[in-house]
Amino acid sequence: METKLLITKLIRNHTTYIATALYSGKKLLELYLEPTEQESILNNIYVGRVKDIVKNLNAAFIEIAPGKPCYYSLEDCHNPLYVKKINSPRMVQGDEVVVQVVKENIKTKPPKVSTNLTFTGTYLVLTTENTSLGISRKLPDEERERLKQLLEPYRNDKFGIVVRTNAAQVEDTKIFQEYETLKQEYEQLMQNAVHRTCFSCLKKSPPEFLSLLKDVHQAELNEIITDDPELFDQINAAGFHATFYEDKLLSLHNLYSLETRLQEALNERVWLKSGGYLVIQPTEALTVIDVNSGKSIAKKKVQEHYLKINLEAAEEIAHQLRLRNISGIIIVDFIDMKEQSAKDELMLHLKQLVKKDSVPVQVVDMTRLNLVELTRKKVRKSLAEQIEGEN
């Protein structure tokens, strides 16, 4: 089935968004909304100032602008680049240090920053504190070994190299060219940083839709489509090939029912083909998903019927986590099953499904109460949070 990436502008309640939507056929897999009037700070690099050290959290709060503190874990403090250092071997209040925003502010939590700076390309990522050579685990073993041998001569003690999934089957020259580009970007920033004043933005990340474009598995992407001339120029200038959609009778987002899919992704209830349904309820601490049999009724072999609904629910849950960008702790209350073999089948099925997610998902365990625990890495805001500020 063809995979397409739609990048278009969408207006909701007087707010204009750049919508980045990944489709498999007509099924919407991922959707991100970026307000045109509000710039994201994710992946920006700043000269920050340490405002507070919180010993019981083993953390610091580092301001990247006056009155804008960010959370920083001192466990991650390995070899930071200081612009100004108070006379102490440890990080202390008043230090000025180069940091990168690695998580947006989510709900009441402030943004999170790291001193492990990353320079991200389509095929590679350079990292400043982790100096190892890492290869994407999503690649086959044979391809992992080939790429490891290819880049082994470039290992050094200044920065690390992470090979992304998109490097698979790519010409060696393209990988080497990107390596040189990222290396120059890293060297220039490191040289300039020590001469910049506090709260300077050393590197501004590209628009969110271009960052998302780099994250998409290029080998599985058949087409990038946009109907906006400005976005079309930006996509092609970034080295990607976009198709320009032009039809005055049928808009791009209507062709793909984007607004309808968005509204469905914001609903609490999700219906299953069997007649069962999910109830998805985010809370401050975690997200709870309840699986219900609903209109699905079995007169015979009830346990087999429950397993069938649960397997269908698992597929839809994996889809909804990705579509809604639900992250953190997720608790799923599946329909109770008596047989351990049925529970094992469900857990194995769920683990296989979440491997398709572009964000790391871990299926932790099933509790004695038959609640399934998952975690999904937090990076960007959930879909619901992306439009929270609508008027």
Rank of each mutant, 00 (worst) to 15 (best):
T173L: 08
A265V: 05
E96A: 05
E208F: 08
Y71K: 09
E284V: 10
V216P: 05
P111E: 01
K9F: 01
S341I: 07
F176Y: 15
K273G: 03
E268R: 14
D233N: 15
P69E: 02
S358M: 09
I64F: 02
G94C: 03
D357W: 09
K112T: 04
P282I: 04
I331Y: 06
L202N: 10
G276C: 01
Y179S: 07
P282T: 09
L147P: 10
N192C: 09
S358Y: 13
Q303D: 07
L311P: 12
V101Q: 08
L348P: 14
P360F: 05
A19E: 00
E178L: 07
N222H: 14
L323I: 05
I106N: 11
M1Y: 12
V170F: 04
W271H: 11
E37V: 14
I317N: 02
H253A: 03
R155T: 07
S274P: 15
K377F: 01
K55R: 15
M1N: 11
L371P: 09
K84W: 01
L250H: 12
I331N: 08
L151N: 06
Q263P: 13
E316P: 13
R261F: 01
N236A: 08
G294Q: 04
L346D: 00
I289W: 01
V47G: 02
F240V: 05
I11M: 13
A265P: 10
H78N: 08
K248I: 00
A298K: 11
A242K: 08
Q93E: 09
C201Y: 09
V50N: 02
P207E: 03
G94D: 04
E284G: 10
R269N: 11
L29K: 14
K377P: 03
V332W: 00
H241Q: 14
H217V: 06
Q93Y: 08
P80I: 00
T243L: 07
E104I: 12
E39Y: 15
S132H: 15
H241L: 07
S88F: 02
K158H: 14
P140W: 04
P360G: 14
Y23R: 12
T243I: 05
A65H: 12
T226S: 09
W271F: 11
Q320E: 05
E373W: 08
L350P: 07
P111L: 01
M190G: 13
N391W: 13
R144S: 03
E345H: 12
D344Y: 15
G48W: 00
M366Y: 08
L266D: 12
V379G: 10
E63G: 11
